[in-house]
Design a protein around this nucleic acid. Sequence first.
DNA 1: GTTGAAAACATGAGTGG
DNA 2: CCACTCATGTTTTCAAC
Lengths: 152, 152
Amino acid sequence: MIDETDRRILVRLQRDATTPYAELAAAVGLSAASVHARVRRLRESGVIRRTTVEVDPAAVGRGVLAFVTVTGDVWMGDPDTVEAFAGIAGIEEAHIVAGTASVLVKVRAATTEGLQSVLREIFHVPGVTGTQTTVVLETGFSRPVTPEVPSP
Amino acid sequence: MIDETDRRILVRLQRDATTPYAELAAAVGLSAASVHARVRRLRESGVIRRTTVEVDPAAVGRGVLAFVTVTGDVWMGDPDTVEAFAGIAGIEEAHIVAGTASVLVKVRAATTEGLQSVLREIFHVPGVTGTQTTVVLETGFSRPVTPEVPSP
DNA sequence: GTTGAAAACATGAGTGG
DNA sequence: CCACTCATGTTTTCAAC
């Protein structure tokens, strides 16, 4: 289980993962080596899944964002179906959901034409009987999964 | 504008942002200093928005994920409304969308009770007339916005 | 874009609470 | 088990080319 100090380290790393351990240490009131040991444990235990860069989608040819609810005539939660969705490059996330749709998919494409071709690929996944697409006009904001912390 | 080399660097940094410049340099066939200069430019131009850690939501008390479509009787795309959504801690993303709903929101909470309280907060945002919630049972996958690259 | 040196940083060993 | 200090090896970073 993680404690308050871990959470404070996590929040700072989410804001900027290039922050030196010495600076993190000063912020949480520990030595750099201790913070290092904690981050190491957080990585090994899977709390920190990876260190990554957030890329502007429009800059890499993925300026169009849409959410697609996919319905099917078979259960779409098993590995084969998930793999099939994973094989479609434009899909960023796939979630098995409760309710009428069985899968909710987040799609990024260069243009609406590219979006159309992703939809075509989705239709080719075995069991898919229909899709309903919601196109995003503008993203208000998007931020990391923030743990609750009293004083950042 | 970014070139092929930039894209290849981006893909590798997305996979692991702790990769040393020397290793990136070897992968793309440049010197470490060149790669450093490129990454610097990518950051300053906003292509790389930030370097961050991906945290397991369940480990920080956000194991419940839901997508909420929010309808309103006023236009919900202006800054005030977006700010109001940003003020709700459980909301990870807010998108202004085309179609019947005006805003699509991604919510993370510790429990279904926590989800309920986020929904209550959403209802308190001026102009909101209704919500429709889709609860995620399981996330099939979630990955970075990948630029298209011939050989990674 | 390159090389090479200097500074900053991460990392591991050993020690004590 | 957790945190500290100190020493060492990498890595980042910035000159000059």
